[in-house]
């Protein structure tokens, strides 16, 4: 790997200034689990790494008016083991506990994962079930980007030059909501991740969110399939129900799958149907 200079700023503003100053030659560095692989492989040459872990408070995991605020330097392990996450956001804890492997979870961060925008990954698809935002700081101050707008293409985000993600902000699921997230694959990275959130009032689905990761280039919601769930009685939404099968077919049609080492387009579409069905049944159970 090429030698590089490691910068250790003590504020997000300082980190942002360093990025602006060095331009393309500089990268933000948190856990480094993706970045260093890319640098060692020679895919991402950079001469300067700007370490966000030295910024005081950046690793905090805290509640802010009911919302969960996860600092950009908080590792997957820190997140999944935090009592507030386990108690108030059990699904987040559950998914974070199974991201990648123990070595990655111990140093990798949620914010770093979102910023790297690797398509075969869990967090983005999970967070689409929530009202979640990336908090970013740049030369012109702080702004928030909805999770749905954060990743725009594989390995590409909506962050402007010099912008630093400082936190991920996750609002609690609305009252009466139940959610599930399922992943599948035999490789190190997931082949597919499917999330389902159902808000049920008087036994009827009044709001539904379905998210799909790892199959499309960028994790996405499946609005056509979601619409079919509205008005369904939750008790009927089991894996054998014809209503769920219709939703699964609609989801498969929207999968935006591509052939790669994880499998063919045809197989991935099939998997989308299987896991949408299973995720809905699990959320409704």
């Amino acid at each position: 790997m090429r030698p590089f200079t490691l910068h250790e700023p003590t504020s997000a503003a300082e980190a942002s200034a360093l990025l602006l100053e060095r331009g393309e030659a500089a990268r933000l560095y948190a856990g480094g689990t993706e970045l260093l692989l890319a640098m060692k492989g020679g895919f991402l040459p950079c001469d300067h790494l700007v370490n966000v872990k030295t910024i005081p408070g950046m690793d905090a995991v805290a509640l802010d008016g009911g919302a969960l605020v996860i600092g950009a330097a908080a590792t997957h392990t820190a997140i999944e083991s935090a009592p507030i996450v386990r108690e108030r956001f059990p699904l987040v804890a559950q998914v974070e506990r199974r991201v990648a492997n123990a070595r990655v979870r111990n140093v990798g961060t949620l914010a770093g994962n979102l910023c790297f925008a690797e398509p075969h990954s869990d967090p983005a698809a999970l967070l689409l079930l929530y009202d979640a935002e990336a908090v970013v700081e740049g030369a012109s101050g702080e702004r928030r980007i909805s999770i749905a707008d954060l990743q725009i293409a594989p390995y590409e985000t909506a962050l402007e030059p010099g912008e630093v993600m400082t936190a991920v902000r996750i609002s609690p699921l609305p009252g009466g909501a139940r959610a599930a997230y399922l992943k599948f694959g035999i490789h190190h990275r997931p082949t597919i991740g499917v999330g389902a959130m159902l808000r049920v009032a008087e036994g009827v689905v009044v709001e539904a969110r379905l998210s799909l990761g790892s199959v499309p280039p960028v994790a996405r919601r499946l609005p056509e399939a979601e619409a079919l769930l509205l008005g369904e009685r939750a008790e009927h939404l089991n894996a054998e129900s014809s209503a769920v099968a219709e939703v699964a077919d609609a989801a498969a049609a929207q999968a935006d799958a591509v052939d790669d080492l994880h499998g063919s387009t045809e197989y991935k579409r099939h998997l989308v149907g299987v896991f949408v069905r299973r995720a809905i049944a699990q959320a409704a159970a």
């Binding site: 492989g41 492997n101 190190h188 080492l261």
Partner: peptide, 13 residues
């Protein structure tokens, strides 16, 4: 070789 690494070449764990 399309999978010359242990991310894309899966060994048992």
């Amino acid at each position: 070789l399309m999978n010359p690494n242990l991310i894309d070449y899966r060994v048992p764990t």
